[in-house]
Amino acid sequence: MKWIKRLAYFFGSLYALVCVVLYFQQERIIFNPTVLEDSFQFWEGEEVYVPVEEDIDLHALWLKQPSTRGVVLYWHGNRGSNRRCLRQAENLAGLGYDVFMPDYRGYGKSDGHISSEKQLFADAQTVYDWLKQHYREDQIVVLGYSLGSGVATYLGTTNHPQHLCLVAPYRSMVEMKNLILPVVPSFLVKYPLRNDQRLGNVKVPVTLFHGTQDELIPFEHSLFLQKLLPQTAQLISLDGKGHRGAIFSSVLREELHYIIKNNI
């Protein structure tokens, strides 16, 4: 019987070690930034810096239209930087609205590093407030893709933009954890990003876009989220699109144009 106890102790210790490592390495697991030199020049858009804390600025690209009627505030996914995501922003541009794309802390030319969900949301609110100095709130469409859907949903609950668009959103990071490591306790998730708990409190029109062949965040996540707001949220299926293909979808562009054109 001693060998059974030793084996149980070994696997118990291994499990505890894995949990500890996962807890303290979450920033590396969730966020995958690319750092850019300050001298790097973008081929499109105006570069601006939004101060979010003393000595901490977020870098953003501002793609302006000649005669704009508003702005799409775009929160990109967890990989790369504005350099990698510029093509995504370009797919959202040219529809009569400017596009404003901030980088998170530690991404691209942004200062600092992400250390908590509270900080992530506070930075997003600061960016939103900065934009309100240039646009009326009813001229702001908040759009979040993948990781950015959690940031966008938060802004939708604390503000009153014209429209909230979520592309390939997740129910929560807790549910994403459960897909991969269900044996790890949920309380260890430092960035729960609970779209499933916040979206029901959004008071503005919501449109969800999700690829039916999404290999990272299952399409069922959007089905669940849409049911939280059956009267005010619509789900647009992107047939045959995977996770990355969703943000480049022509259907997304067309529907966003409809939203902007009709000011809904």
Rank of each mutant, 00 (worst) to 15 (best):
I4W: 15
K5T: 13
L7G: 14
G12M: 05
L14K: 10
V20T: 10
Y23P: 03
Y23R: 08
F24P: 01
Q25E: 09
Q26G: 06
R28V: 00
I29R: 02
I30E: 02
F31M: 04
P33E: 01
T34L: 10
D38H: 12
D38G: 15
S39K: 14
S39G: 13
F42C: 05
G45K: 01
E46N: 14
E47F: 06
E54Q: 09
L58A: 12
L63P: 01
L63D: 02
K64A: 06
K64D: 10
V72G: 04
V72K: 01
Y74G: 07
H76L: 12
H76G: 14
H76Q: 15
G77R: 02
N78Y: 09
N82Y: 07
N82D: 12
N82I: 11
R83A: 15
R83D: 14
R87A: 11
N91P: 04
L92N: 01
L92K: 03
A93N: 04
G94Q: 04
G94L: 02
G96H: 05
Y97G: 02
Y97T: 08
Y97N: 09
Y97V: 05
D98A: 07
F100G: 01
G106A: 08
Y107M: 11
G108C: 09
K109E: 04
S110C: 09
G112F: 05
H113T: 11
H113F: 10
K118L: 13
A122F: 12
Q125F: 13
T126V: 15
V127P: 02
D129G: 11
L131A: 08
Y135L: 09
R136L: 14
E137P: 06
E137S: 13
V141T: 05
Y145M: 06
S146P: 01
G148N: 10
G148E: 04
S149P: 02
S149H: 04
V151P: 04
A152W: 03
Y154E: 09
G156C: 08
G156W: 08
T157Y: 05
P161L: 03
H163T: 04
L164Q: 01
A168W: 02
P169G: 06
S172F: 00
N178F: 10
N178Q: 13
I180H: 14
P182A: 12
V184P: 05
L188Q: 03
L188M: 06
V189E: 00
K190Y: 00
K190W: 01
P192D: 09
P192T: 01
L199S: 13
L199R: 07
N201Q: 09
V204K: 03
P205A: 08
V206M: 11
T207Q: 04
T212R: 04
E215T: 12
E215Q: 10
P218E: 13
P218K: 13
F219P: 03
E220I: 13
L225G: 07
K227E: 15
L228A: 14
L228R: 14
P230V: 11
Q231G: 09
T232G: 08
Q234P: 07
Q234I: 14
L235I: 09
L235P: 08
S237L: 00
S237D: 06
L238V: 01
G240S: 00
G242A: 03
H243L: 10
A246T: 05
F248C: 05
V251Y: 00
L252K: 04
R253N: 00
E254K: 00
Y258C: 05
